[in-house]
């Protein structure tokens, strides 16, 4: 069996896979990192988005063997070791940007990459366009957009505290 060595959430791992094993299959089935989800089989839904070498990718559309030597970050690796949530996670909770939670890990990982690539800040319209690769069936996206708009303020160091949502 082929082996692939990579770093997942900061930890080096070596995993036996088939050549046809997708990154998401390796994460879910072999590493039991089940926070990354599979919502479609045509690379449309984005529930499987993780970061590979700092860029958001659909882990259902990349082979595990292609990740030799890569650094992979999944939803499980986002919070600080002490449990402090990433500002994007915190914002999703504060703004009720999730309901069933299934698209959420991919949505959060995409949103973080989107904000990081746009230090100038994003308008609501730009956030909506930046979410083209992620489907949510529950929220209607309204609160996801609000959460990302709030999180970017903290992520860009323009505020220490997340702006609170209305009560």
């Amino acid at each position: 069996m082929p082996k692939v060595s990579l770093t997942v959430n900061g930890k080096p791992v070596t995993v036996e896979v088939e050549n046809r094993t997708l990154l998401v299959e390796m994460l879910r089935e072999q590493l039991r990192l089940t926070g990354t989800h599979v919502g479609c089989d045509t690379s449309q839904c984005g529930a499987c988005v993780v970061h590979v070498n700092g860029a958001s990718v659909k882990s259902c559309t990349i082979l595990a063997v292609q990740c030799e030597g890569a650094e992979v970050l999944t939803i499980e690796g986002l919070a600080s070791p002490d449990g402090t949530l990433h500002p994007m996670q915190e914002a999703f909770r504060e703004y009720h940007a999730l309901q069933c939670g299934f698209c959420t890990p991919g949505m959060v990982m995409s949103a973080i990459d989107l904000v990081q690539r746009n230090p100038q800040g994003l308008s609501d319209r730009e956030i909506r366009e930046g979410l083209e690769g992620n489907l949510c069936r529950c929220t209607g996206y309204h609160n996801i957009v609000r959460a990302i708009a709030a999180a970017q303020v903290v992520m860009h160091g323009k505020a220490k505290e997340l702006p609170r949502a209305a009560e």
Partner: peptide
């Protein structure tokens, strides 16, 4: 939300 946001939900396909 905490479990969903940290990848610790348990959906049926997560059960083995």
């Amino acid at each position: 939300d905490l479990r969903f946001l940290s990848g610790r939900g348990t959906y049926t396909d997560d059960i083995n």
